[in-house]
Design a protein around this nucleic acid. Structure first.
Length: 497
RNA sequence: GCACCGGUGGCGAAGUGGCUAACGCGCUGGUCUGCAAAACCAGUAUUCGAGGGUUCGACCCCCUCCCGGUGCUCCA
């Protein structure tokens, strides 16, 4: 079975493979750490995570690189407003970014280089371009890329630049450029701004050059795949290609992967629309990290996803069903033999085939999850009818492990993650942003697991004495506090609703 | 304005030129239960934005229109 992906560069679905026969070398444009990440950012990183996990499931080894942009205009502006050095300022948001990625179950790339630690590589790359007069220095000391020298410019975004007159849209002389579309490689700095002394002069790198320099440093001049949000296609990725290929005269990335933007409640997410959410905002409202992950993955990466609170509730319920099912299969006592164990074995086998085929077909996560729910229903039915054996259970658990190696929602870390978000809000003096019910359930005054276990035991005792009034009172109290009880043959299970 | 993407049941969302239009959530009835929850069973789109066309046959191909979204500028 092969993993095929749409390639923006060619406009076709093509097999993904490691061209060096060893590891899939891929680069993903990482965050600019100037603020907390929002769910739009995370949709991209989540789908890149699915790509990475799928590549591994299809047998590939990985060398995944993601940069951290820790110097840029916004960081400089915000750090100075906060009275901090850009190093301290960006370090705070880099840490927060990875906490959020962990909360969402996103794996760490193999290498995560920072822009500020690769200034020399960037300067060296610009010098190579300068040697061929493709890069030129403007009067203010900034360096630009001469687009006129790149006949292939626009091949990724398929833009037609013929009709666009130089200077028609931007005032050229403001930027001291030879042509309006020439883009900055190196920015001369204003006094007081953080800057680096290099052969290019005193200054700081442009945004695009970062990714070219770091991608090639870790992955070589040519590598397998480059990923990012759809907005990066132009100009960022186009410029990366131009710089890199003009410098090395070799193809840059073979395969380009772009994740579409999401909508929030039907509109583009923006602060002015009031529909802008960070992960932390949602956790403080009481939504679970696992539901957010599942929702963001439930629509394939090339389709627009409309993120809604109803959708979040739906995903919460769907994840619950999967977890309940997983627990049932794992903890149940299943017989060695059953009259119809072979039939369900076949259902599990075809379910796995469908699951892998769906992922292999341009990462169709919607179909992949449907395949798992097909198996879920069939197994529940078989189990209810005594047609489910211990070896069927093993096969089901193996399939669920494969499912979870992509979706990563079965393990329940939600309550801990919500508590961590509350602790953060408290430390930042932002506890007022949390839903009061969330504070009640998960805050320091909330019930601990031990408290709940004690109440559950008391209820079991009451039930044994047929004191149903007391038993139901305990159950209702717990429910009011967001704890849901489930009686079963094997005892009482509880979960946080 | 130019370009691109989408419009499938109450909601979300797959999908294919021809088998009963996946799957999830929700809802209704039933089984189980002291009652619930979980689980299961049954039901929940004669129909895929509208109108034309191509075809033996279209939700899927072509044209027109309507609606929503996105890009063309910093943005995941």
């Amino acid at each position: 079975m092969t993993l095929e992906l749409f390639n923006t560069l060619t406009g076709k679905i093509e097999p993904l493979y490691a061209s060096d026969g060893k590891a899939l070398r891929f680069y993903c444009c990482g965050p600019t750490v100037y603020d907390y990440g929002h769910i739009g950012n995370f949709r991209t990183f989540l789908h890149v995570d699915v790509l990475r996990r799928s590549a591994r499931l299809f047998g590939m080894k990985l060398h995944h690189v993601m940069n951290i942009t820790d110097v840029d205009d916004k960081i400089i502006r915000n750090a100075s407003a906060a009275g901090q050095s850009i190093g301290d300022y960006s370090a705070k948001f880099e840490k927060a970014f990875f906490e959020d990625m962990d909360a969402l179950g996103v794996e760490r790339p193999e290498d995560v280089p920072r822009a500020t630690e690769n200034i020399n590589e960037m300067a060296a790359l610009i010098e190579r371009l300068a040697a061929e007069d493709i890069a030129y220095k403007a009067e203010d000391g900034s360096w630009y890329f001469r687009i006129a020298r790149d006949s292939e410019y626009g091949k990724l975004s398929k833009k037609d630049f013929e009709g666009i007159e130089d200077g028609a849209r931007v005032s050229v002389d403001e930027y001291d450029k030879d042509a309006a579309r020439d883009f900055a490689l190196w920015k001369a700095t204003k006094p007081g701004e953080t800057s680096w002394q290099t052969a290019l002069g005193q200054g700081r790198p442009g945004w695009h050059i970062e990714c070219s320099a770091m991608a090639m440093k870790y992955l070589g001049n040519s590598f397998d795949l480059h990923a990012g949000g759809e907005d990066l296609m132009f100009p960022h990725h186009e410029n990366e290609i131009a710089q890199s290929e003009c410098a090395t005269h070799q193809p840059f990335a073979r395969h380009w992967f772009h994740v579409r933007f999401l909508l929030v409640e039907g509109k583009k997410m923006s602060k002015s629309e009031g529909n802008f959410y960070t992960l932390r905002d949602l956790l403080l409202k009481g939504y679970r990290a696992s539901a957010i992950r599942f929702l963001l993955l439930s629509v394939p990466y090339r389709h627009q996803l409309n993120f809604t609170f109803d959708g979040l509730t739906e995903s919460t319920n769907a994840v619950d069903r999967l977890r309940t099912f997983h627990t049932r299969v794992r903890d149940g006592k299943w017989p060695e033999r059953a009259s119809n164990g072979a039939a369900i074995a076949e259902v599990i086998r075809t379910g796995e085939e469908k699951f892998l085929a769906a992922l292999g077909n341009d990462l169709n996560t919607a179909e992949a999850r449907a395949a798992i729910f097909d198996v879920l229903r069939a197994v529940n039915t078989a189990a209810d009818h005594g047609n489910f054996t211990s070896s069927n259970a093993e096969a089901t658990l193996a399939l669920l492990a494969k499912f979870d190696s992509i979706f990563a929602v079965l393990e329940d870390r939600d309550a801990d993650l919500t508590r961590a978000a509350l602790a953060w809000a408290k430390a930042e003096g932002r506890l007022d942003e949390a839903d009061p019910q969330v504070i009640e359930k998960f805050g320091e005054a909330g019930l601990s697991d031990a408290d709940i276990d004690a109440l559950v035991a008391e209820r079991t005792q009451a039930k044994r004495q047929r004191n149903f009034a007391r038993a139901d009172a305990i159950r209702n109290d717990l429910l009011a506090k967001g704890i849901l009880l489930e009686d079963s043959k094997d005892g009482v299970r509880w979960k946080r609703a």
